[in-house]
Design a protein around this nucleic acid. Structure first.
Ligand SMILES: [Mn+2]
Ligand SMILES: [Mn+2]
Ligand SMILES: [Mn+2]
Ligand SMILES: [Mn+2]
Lengths: 218, 218
DNA sequence: TATAATTTTTAGTTAAGACTAAATATATAT
DNA sequence: ATATATATTTAGTCTTAACTAAAAATTATA
């Protein structure tokens, strides 16, 4: 069994590995968890003793299979709870993350499996992120950043990269929600801003926005 | 804001006060929380600093209004989650307590109020215990221990005093669930055991059982 | 390659929340 | 009323998970 703090470290390392990095550095973990590098070193030793990470001094850290499975299960819980909050308790997608950060640490296999069933075995959370199965497997769907689409290409909005409240509320305001069809009308060379079509409405969005929206090309 | 440990102490004191005791002793708290008296003294000082209990050395402890409200809110969360687990996730009444012990510490006013609404504003938990309202008010219903009923009296089963798994599973086995009509057929003077009628079936139950079952007389 | 900059680890503190053992206050019994 | 028993508090220790500051290793630069 893992403490709340250990679980948060595991999750942080898991996300960093998914982001593509190979050896996860002490500093990157510290930054992700808003803590100090020395604290990370301490915790890494504990996680290494518990066989969830491989640790070589000065060489960064790597999840073991057990570590990956454990972390994926926490992410599974986080995302299932987010679905619950949005689907059943009328939370909006920008309100769920903080509560899910708490709920993901509740320990009960039955709880999470029954919740999964109650929700109809959802495959994605409210931000379009995939929900790991009971064994920790993630099926990643093919998606591209809106910023990589070319003029006249069209796709469905399937996720966000940044899921901060500010960004999500901005999207709400613009009428951009998951499932919406988006067409690139124009691409400005000067600042990489885009002119897009959503619901017959023409919107102008910055490159920063386009870099945080995932599209499934169609 | 209160830590998990502080919340558990508040809840313990709250329950002890509801049980009728006036000045709650260090030892009784220690026993309820399975901890040592010295640990209790430490924590009581912290709670006193935070204005949730009145503490006079050697004289026991008492909840302030703020303390009562805080504790009642934790109990509210505990019981609403128990309803959720039974009504929505197919838990049985003997499986919910441990999970609710964890869920009661999740901090989100919106979560608990939406959950309340989602559940249809239940007034009692799966064990027949009343659910405090948002202000911490408890409406207690009139109920008697089955052991206090006389021969030929009849009532509805409305709660349990002991809600351990073992007791609850025993009741399930006997077909005694909340809402069942129970009639006292015979009372044995020798050992205070009872012969009762449930669902046309005659059952013989010990005094210990009868002392843990609440009945609303009819 | 030698030096400088950066990253990581180690050593030593701190705070929360538990514990044991000892001291002190209160309650009970002669 | 005094002695004994019980309850409570205090003093000091331990563990977890943070922190700062200093030391050591690695990486980058001249
Ligand atoms: Mn989230
Ligand atoms: Mn999410
Ligand atoms: Mn309970
Ligand atoms: Mn209950």
């Amino acid at each position: 069994m893992f403490t709340l703090s250990e679980e948060n470290y595991l999750k942080a390392i898991y996300h960093l590995e998914l982001d593509g990095t190979k050896g996860i550095s002490t500093n990157s973990i510290a930054e992700k968890l808003q803590t100090k590098a020395s604290s990370v070193t301490d915790m890494i030793k504990k996680l290494s003793d518990k066989k969830v990470v491989i640790y070589k001094k000065y060489k960064g850290v790597k999840l073991t299979d057990l570590g990956k499975k454990t972390a994926a299960n926490i992410v599974r819980k986080h995302r299932l709870w987010e679905v619950f909050l949005v689907e059943k308790l009328n939370f909006s997608w920008d309100e769920v993350h903080e509560v899910a950060e708490q709920l993901e640490h509740i320990k009960s296999a039955k709880l999470i499996n029954q919740l999964d069933e109650f929700l109809g075995f959802p495959t994605h959370d409210p931000h379009g992120d995939p929900i790991p199965d009971n064994e920790g497997n993630l099926k990643t769907i093919e998606k591209s950043l809106l910023s990589t689409l070319h003029k006249n290409e069209t796709g469905i909005c399937v996720g966000v990269d940044d899921s901060s409240s500010e960004f999500l509320q901005f999207l709400d305001k613009k009428g951009i929600v998951l499932g919406k069809k988006i067409t690139v009308l124009e691409k400005e060379n000067f600042d990489d801003s885009l002119s897009i079509l959503v619901d017959e409405k023409k919107l102008s969005i910055s490159n920063k926005i386009a870099n945080n929206l995932y599209i499934k090309k169609s």
